Measured scan of single mutants.
Amino acid sequence: SEEWVEIALRLLELGREANINGTILNLHKEEIEELIRRLLKRI
């Protein structure tokens, strides 16, 4: 399964939302940290 691709796409999506909203992603901080942890486990 290409889970890391899904994770990377989700991170990009959150990054785009952050640019549009001008936020520092506090809302998504925990989700982002969890996604990155899952991503690093696969490398």
Rank of each mutant, 00 (worst) to 15 (best):
S1E: 07
S1V: 15
E2R: 09
E2L: 14
E2S: 12
E2M: 11
E3Q: 10
E3G: 10
W4S: 01
W4N: 00
W4Y: 06
W4A: 02
V5L: 13
V5Q: 05
V5K: 05
V5H: 08
V5S: 03
V5Y: 11
E6H: 12
E6M: 15
E6G: 05
E6D: 10
E6L: 07
I7T: 01
I7D: 03
A8F: 13
L9V: 03
L9G: 01
L9N: 02
R10G: 07
L11D: 00
L11G: 00
L12N: 01
L12Q: 04
L12K: 02
L12R: 01
L12G: 03
E13H: 07
E13K: 03
L14V: 03
L14S: 01
G15T: 09
G15Q: 08
R16G: 02
R16Y: 12
R16W: 06
R16A: 03
E17V: 09
E17N: 06
A18G: 06
A18K: 01
A18H: 06
N19Q: 12
N19W: 15
I20T: 12
I20F: 09
N21L: 14
N21E: 06
N21S: 07
N21V: 14
G22P: 15
G22T: 12
T23K: 07
T23I: 12
T23V: 10
T23C: 15
T23N: 11
I24F: 09
I24S: 10
I24N: 11
L25D: 10
L25Y: 04
L25I: 11
L25E: 01
L25H: 05
N26L: 14
N26S: 07
L27D: 15
L27K: 13
L27T: 08
H28Q: 08
H28P: 04
H28W: 14
K29F: 15
K29Q: 11
K29Y: 14
K29C: 08
E30F: 06
E30Y: 04
E30A: 07
E30W: 10
E31F: 13
E31A: 10
E31M: 10
E31W: 11
I32N: 00
I32C: 11
I32W: 12
E33M: 14
E33H: 10
E33V: 13
E33Y: 11
E34D: 12
E34Y: 01
E34I: 05
E34S: 08
L35E: 01
L35R: 03
L35A: 03
I36P: 00
I36D: 00
I36E: 00
R37C: 07
R37G: 03
R37K: 08
R37P: 00
R37D: 06
R38P: 01
L39M: 05
L39K: 00
L40T: 02
L40F: 05
L40E: 02
L40Q: 01
K41A: 05
K41E: 10
R42I: 15
R42K: 14
I43W: 14
I43R: 01
I43H: 05
I43A: 06
